[in-house]
Lab assay of single mutants.
Amino acid sequence: MKVIFLKDVKGMGKKGEIKNVADGYANNFLFKQGLAIEATPANLKALE
């Protein structure tokens, strides 16, 4: 799943980066902790 990092995550990515991560990792950790959001077309447009 493609995500946009909202904060730096050690060993994974930096704020503003777009990366592919495992679905479970994104849903169970990154999204719940507020560290990333899904890289949807609307979210990608908002990032620009």
Rank of each mutant, 00 (worst) to 15 (best):
M1P: 06
K2W: 07
K2L: 15
V3M: 02
V3E: 01
I4T: 01
I4P: 00
I4E: 01
F5Q: 00
L6W: 01
L6N: 02
K7Q: 13
K7A: 13
D8K: 04
D8I: 02
D8V: 02
V9N: 00
V9H: 04
V9G: 00
K10V: 12
K10N: 10
G11M: 06
M12D: 03
M12Q: 13
M12C: 14
M12Y: 11
M12G: 06
G13H: 05
G13K: 00
G13P: 00
G13R: 00
K14Q: 12
K14P: 00
K15Y: 06
K15T: 08
K15V: 10
G16D: 05
G16R: 03
G16I: 00
G16A: 02
G16L: 05
G16M: 05
E17Y: 03
E17D: 11
E17A: 05
E17P: 00
E17W: 03
I18A: 04
I18C: 07
I18D: 03
K19R: 12
K19Y: 07
K19S: 08
K19V: 12
K19L: 09
N20Q: 13
N20V: 14
V21P: 01
V21F: 07
V21Y: 03
A22W: 09
A22C: 07
A22N: 14
D23W: 15
D23C: 15
D23N: 13
G24Y: 15
G24D: 15
G24L: 10
N27Y: 15
N27C: 14
N27R: 15
N28S: 11
N28K: 10
F29W: 13
F29K: 07
F29N: 09
F29T: 08
L30I: 03
L30N: 00
L30S: 00
L30M: 03
F31C: 05
F31Q: 04
K32I: 12
K32V: 09
Q33C: 15
Q33W: 15
Q33G: 08
G34M: 09
G34Y: 10
G34D: 04
L35F: 10
L35K: 03
L35S: 04
L35I: 08
A36L: 02
I37E: 03
I37H: 04
I37D: 01
E38D: 04
E38S: 06
E38Y: 03
E38K: 07
E38F: 04
E38L: 06
A39S: 04
A39H: 05
A39T: 02
A39Q: 01
A39Y: 11
T40D: 05
T40F: 04
P41Q: 11
P41T: 10
P41C: 11
A42L: 07
A42N: 14
A42D: 15
N43I: 08
N43A: 11
L44K: 06
L44W: 02
L44G: 02
L44T: 08
K45C: 14
K45Q: 11
K45G: 09
A46W: 15
L47K: 06
E48I: 12
E48W: 06
E48F: 09
E48D: 13
E48T: 13
E48Y: 08
